[in-house]
Amino acid sequence: MLDQSAKRQLPPRPGIGYKPQHFSNILQDAEPVKWLEIHAENYMGDGGRPLAQLRYLAERFPISVHGVGLSIGGEGPLNRDHLARLKHLCDWVDPASFSEHLAWSTHGAEFLNDLLPLPYTDATLERVADHIAEVQDHVGRRMLLENPSVYVNFTETNMGEIEFLTEVARRTGCGLLLDVNNVFVSCTNRQTDPYDYIDRFPHQLVGEIHLGGHDEDTDDMGAPLLIDAHGSEVVDPVWQLYAHTIAISGPKPTLIEWDNDVPDWPVLADEASRAARILDKVIA
C-alpha cells in the first residue's frame, strides 16, 4: 500500500501511460516506473474491470488523471456533464496530478476526438482562462495545462505560445504540463528552434513532462511535417531536448506516452529506464 503522503504529488521519476494489457506486468515488477497516468475518459463508466483495476493501482501508485475530452479551447461552454464526471473521478481516485490540453475537440453537440488547435489572441486567451478557472472551481483542484502539437499557423495569432500559456497560468493559477515531444514537433512544423522554446519556457510552473513518439511526413512544399502519433519510441533528438530541459529545470515527473500500437511491457520499461538515467545525471 502506498503511504498517503506519497500519493499527494508525482515523484520526479519516470511514469508511464497506463494500458490495461500491462496490469500484471506492473503488479509483478514496475521498475523503474514510479507512477501511472490514465486517460480520464476511459474510467468514466459505472463499473467493471477498468474501475476495478484503477482502484487497485491507485492504492499502490501515485496516479495522474489526464483528460483528453474537456475541450478547454472550445468556443462553446464547457460540457457540464463532463465536468461532473471529471470531478467524480478525481474525488474517488484522489490523483497526485490532474491535467488537460490547450486544444478544442467539441463543437456544438459533436465531439471530434482530436486535439484541435486554436489561434493565440486576446479573445482566445480570455476564453481559455475562463474555462480553466471554471474547471478548477468545479473539480476543486489545480490543473496542469499541456502545450499542444500543432501543424498549422493561424494568421490571426498575435502572441507566442509561451506568452499565451504563461498568461493563462498567471490569470488562473494553473500549472503547466510540458510535452517535450510536442515542443519538438511544433517547432519543427513552425520552422522555429525547439531549444530556444525550452530556454524561454517558465519551468517553475511545470508540474510534469511528457515524452512520446512521432511520425515524419512532409507538407506540400516538401518541408518536414512531424505528426504527434504516440505509436513509437521517443527519438534521439527528443531525448536530447529532454536532457537539455531538465538540466535547466531540475528533475520533473516524466511520462512515457505510448497510445497506439502499444508494445509489450519491456519496451516501455526500457523507455522509462532511459528517462531514469537522464534524471539520475541531473540529481547527481
Binding site: V152, F154, T155, D220, M221
Partner: peptide, 9 residues
C-alpha cells in the same frame, strides 16, 4: 483560409 504554413502559404 486563415490557416497557413510558416511562410504564410
Amino acid at each position: 483560409a486563415g490557416l497557413a504554413d510558416p511562410q504564410g502559404r
